[in-house]
């Protein structure tokens, strides 16, 4: 009996890895729970003036190809005297979480931006916009990516 067990023991690691999911399937975020505890969001985690209104992130819920995923970011007109200072797009699973930072060097109180990004698999994205009045507007979006952009680095 012992001898038979020993013969099959070498297959155990393979059996365990075959059962384990190959990719962590992330869930859509719930805005009412606040910003998630991602290391890349550490700077904003305890910000006293976080607001989940005003910023809109428009993109598909499923992307066939993670190499080029179109997105649109819009910000409603801000109150008088308030304008955008910085915009950050942060990803949950990309090897480099910050996809881009956009600095507004002249006052701009609305935003309409479209671009194409790379995504390393199914994940959540968070956009944060900082205003000159100290408010931080944020929005999240969950996207399923069938073909990841970054096979080796992810």
């Amino acid at each position: 009996m012992k001898r038979r067990l020993f013969c099959w023991a070498w297959l155990l690691p393979w059996a365990v890895s075959a059962q384990a999911p190959t990719e962590a399937w992330t869930q859509a975020l719930r805005p009412e729970l606040g910003l998630p505890k991602w290391p890349a969001l550490k700077h904003w985690q305890t910000h006293p003036r976080l607001s989940h209104t005003g910023l809109r992130l428009e993109m598909e819920h499923i992307a066939d190809n993670g190499n080029s995923v179109p997105l649109r970011l819009c910000c409603e007109a801000l109150p008088a005297q308030e304008h955008l200072r910085q915009l950050h797009l942060i990803s949950e699973r990309n090897p480099r979480p910050e996809i881009f930072k956009l600095e507004f060097l002249q006052p701009l109180n609305t935003l309409d931006l479209s671009t194409r990004i790379r995504l390393a698999g199914t994940q959540n994205l968070i956009a944060l916009a900082e205003t000159n009045q100290g408010r931080v507007l944020w929005v999240s979006h969950h996207i399923s990516v069938t073909d990841s952009a970054c096979v080796e680095g992810a």
Binding site: R96, F100, L102, E103, F104, D112, L113, T115, R116
Partner: peptide
């Protein structure tokens, strides 16, 4: 000579970057 915007991308921006943005 007046700077309006500065975009600092990482590896997450797709190849052949495309940007459409509203300015005033």
């Amino acid at each position: 000579d007046t700077a309006l915007l500065r975009l600092t991308p990482s590896s997450g921006l797709a190849a052949n970057p495309y940007l459409q943005i509203s300015l005033s």
